[in-house]
Each structure stands twice: as C-alpha cells, then as structure tokens.
Amino acid sequence: MKPLADAAPPLVACGLRKRYGGREVVAGVGIELRAGECFGLLGPNGAGKTTTLRLILGLTEPHAGSVSLCGLPVPARAREARARVGVVPQFDNLDPDFTVEQNLVVFGRYFGLPARDIRARTPALLAFAGLEGRAATPIGELSGGMKRRLTLARALVNDPELLILDEPTTGLDPQARHLIWERLKLLLAQGKTVLLTTHFMDEAERLCHRLAIMDRGRIIAEGSPRAVIAQRIEPQVVEVFGEWNGAGADGWAQAQAARYARRFEVSGETAFCYVTDPRPLLEHLDAQPGLRYLHRPANLEDVFLKLTGRELRD
C-alpha cells in the first residue's frame, strides 16, 4: 500500500507571509504544484522568490500561512519532507574540501544514504551532469558551468520527487544554460516535479508548464506562459528606433505613437509599441525614412516589464 502522502500535490503553499523588520518580503503568496509539472516563479531581484523557497523548505518560519511539502506539514515535519526533495541553491555551495565524487557521497550521507550506494550511482549521476571522468577532480578545478551541473547532480542523490532550483542558470554561458534546460526536461520526462525561480523569460517560456510572476512579495500574474501573454498584453510588439525629424525614436513616439498603438513605452533609444493590428503602424513607419523597426509577437518579457516596470531593482 502506498502512503497517503503520495496522493497529495507535491507542494501546497497558502497565504505565506514573511516580514523582516517592518518590511513584508513575502506578502501573501499561494502556490499549488501538480505532480510532474514544471512551475516557474518569476520576478525581479528582491521580489521575494528566494524567501518563498526558504519558507517552502522550512528553512525559515513564516509569520502567517501554511506549507505542505510532499504531503507533509512544514516546518513541523520539514526534515522528512526535505528527504524527498532536491535543492539547487542560487549560489554554489559545493564542498571545496572534497572531490566531485566525495561531494556526492558526503551529501548522500546527510540523507542517511550509505556511501557504497552513492559510489555505485556516481557514474550515472556524473554522466547525467556531463561530468564523466571527473569523479576525482577537486571542486576548485571545475568551471562555473560544471559546478552548476554538479550541484544539479548533488540534488539528485536522494532520487527526489520534487526538484527546487533557485535561478539555476544565472551566470552561465548559453551552452551551459541549454545543457541545464535539456537535463531539466529529461527529469520532467522521468516524472519529477520541478519548481524553479528565474528572471530569464526565455527560460520560463521554454521550460515551464505554468508560472507565476512575483513582485514586491506578491504574485501578480499566474498561468501557462501562453495564457499569461494572451491575457496580460497586446499580441504584437513593434520596436521603433532610429532618426525622426532631427530627433530620435523618442520624439517620434511622443508625437505619433499614440495614433497607431494602443500603448507605447520609451526606453532609452527605443520606443516599444504594443498593438493588436500592426498594419497601420507598419505602413506609417515604412513612410518614415530615418526610422527602423522590429516587428515581433509579444513575449513573456513584455508582460514581465509591463507588470513590474522598467526601473532598475537592486
């Protein structure tokens, strides 16, 4: 007989709140994951993504709200719940005193797994992470991408049901990012559930079945990437740049854009026009010799910038 917990969703978080001093960093977040899906938590820096993950793992206590992780209440039974979860933290914290294989063995011991079991599985884990033949390499000799992949392999030592990744591809080059994406898809195909945070919109569009956009501690949009785009923004975007009557695209936008676009924004040298029917705008632009433009379908980044604004977050 299977334990009851297996029937429960991998994660249910309700009304989570967390304050630091007077500031509410997580201000009423609710997330429910379905088994086997990839769920993305998107948001600018300081939106509360990492704190939300820490609350989910029972690494800090919420001021309000509840978490059920793998069917177990957190933080009350966080230890048991974490035994069934793999975590890839935002910053690499591999053990620099050990080799690649020793990192896996030592981490497995924290789960109560015998060293010989981990050693037996090491070749498969390293092959998965693209680190074949590196078992005896000291951590200091790995590149940033290799460290990230080893951290992913380390998160799999306990064969988790749910994988939680905090910005898994931040700081990686395109090759390394694509490899991580491919591996995550493989894990999803194996039936694992994935929860990740990111501020790369292409990553979220590519990987996530569903996502939530977070800002200032709250979830401000939620759904499949397509549904979020369809519901939250005009379907077409025309980016306008170049020269116009001795001014830049900015001058053109202030004078003309409102006639052709339902909504427009100027950022630096570029005017972003959001439209449902782009034809009148494109005809107009074709008649302006100094202006150039890029016409494309709206994407998640447009939604993200619309909802969270264009000002810098540090």
């Binding site: 048991e80 974490r82 035994a83 975590v87 933290p89 914290n93 109560g112 306990n158």
Partner: peptide
C-alpha cells in the same frame, strides 16, 4: 564556504 547552508537543504 556556506557548507552549513548546503547541509540544511538535506533532512
């Protein structure tokens, strides 16, 4: 090294 933070992600 943040070793402690790595460990507490395990049970």
């Amino acid at each position: 090294q943040k070793t402690w933070e790595a460990i507490v992600n395990a049970p």
